[in-house]
Design a protein around this nucleic acid. Structure first.
Length: 278
DNA sequence: CTCAGTGTTCAGTG
DNA sequence: TCACTGAACACTGA
């Protein structure tokens, strides 16, 4: 369930459970894919007895800064999440699927127990998530080349204009490019363009001043609002396209009754409303 | 049985 | 370097 808001929700959960605590036990599955070839013992050795100093995030990447390196980096892929024992998870996925309350949860990849009795788990059903160890926290030398984070690092409108200047990419693809805006995923990109009233197939170079301003405002706005409600879909405003795009039937319509179209852009299904986006 | 899916990466082309 | 495509990864749930 990971785009920026879900990752931020996970980070906060983890921060509350882990920061200031010492890791006293680690349970790590032998999964060379999710752990990028690392053996469970490597991971356990790196985490055991360490104190978590901070839980950080940039885009969809979350990492713990420990009192001593290396530091763990988490990426949820398509289906990852953090769970804290006794704390409500994000119950509603986009399609309204329920998360069960079993402990340890299904699809656990790593579990950590802390000196205060708390427990944190990362789950990952589809195994497209990754857990790595890095020598330095990613604050400076990035694990990957990430652009601005729309929650914590949203550029001013003039700076945004500068970032876009000279680029010719199709808008939907640009928003999805993590080197441009880190943390934006498929539904956020569509939501931003819907609220900005811009056709997702257009090129960024074709936007006039007003359109660029709307794009900037809605990118910031959508992300902030989603984070403000802890990524709970049932608390997203009813006017958001998000609520109406999943049925995907020929009869799909937005809040105002306008038909929703589906096209593939950059290999991803894109929902948009021709009546409202030019 | 088939297929889409909140994601990333890499190879290859222009 | 940029822009774009297609394939690969892996597996659940409809």
């Amino acid at each position: 369930m990971p785009e920026l808001p879900e990752a931020e929700f996970g980070r906060r959960m983890a921060a509350e459970a882990a920061v200031g605590r010492q890791i006293v036990a680690v349970r790590c599955q032998p999964d060379p894919i999710v752990f990028c070839g690392r053996a469970p013992e490597d991971i356990e050795r790196a985490l055991l007895q360490r104190t978590v100093v901070a839980a950080c995030r940039r885009g969809k990447y979350i990492w713990f800064e420990l009192d001593r390196g290396p530091h763990p980096v988490f990426h949820f892929g398509m289906t990852g999440a953090f769970r804290v024992r006794g704390v409500d998870p994000l119950k509603l996925a986009s399609h309204g699927k329920q998360v069960d309350d079993a402990w340890p949860p299904r699809f656990e990849k790593i579990g950590m127990a802390f000196d205060d009795g708390g427990e944190l788990v990362m789950t990952n059903a589809r195994r497209l998530g990754r857990i790595r160890l890095v020598e330095r926290p990613l604050s400076e030398p990035p694990l990957v080349d990430l652009g601005f984070d729309p929650l914590t690092d949203m550029p001013s409108l003039p700076a945004f204009r500068g970032l876009v200047a000279g680029r010719t990419a199709v808008l939907k693809s640009l928003l999805l490019d993590q080197r441009f805006s880190a943390g934006v995923g498929n539904w956020i990109a569509d939501e931003v363009l819907y609220q900005a009233g811009i056709d997702p197939r257009r090129r960024v170079s074709s936007l006039d001043t007003g359109e660029l301003k709307r794009l900037h405002a809605r990118l910031r706005g959508v992300v902030r609002q989603a984070v403000a409600v802890d990524a709970r879909k049932d608390r997203f405003p009813r006017s958001w396209l998000f609520h109406y795009r999943w049925g995907k039937g020929a009869d799909a319509r937005d809040h105002g009754g306008s038909p929703i179209e589906f096209v593939e852009i950059g290999g991803r299904t894109t929902a948009w409303v021709p009546a409202r986006q030019r």
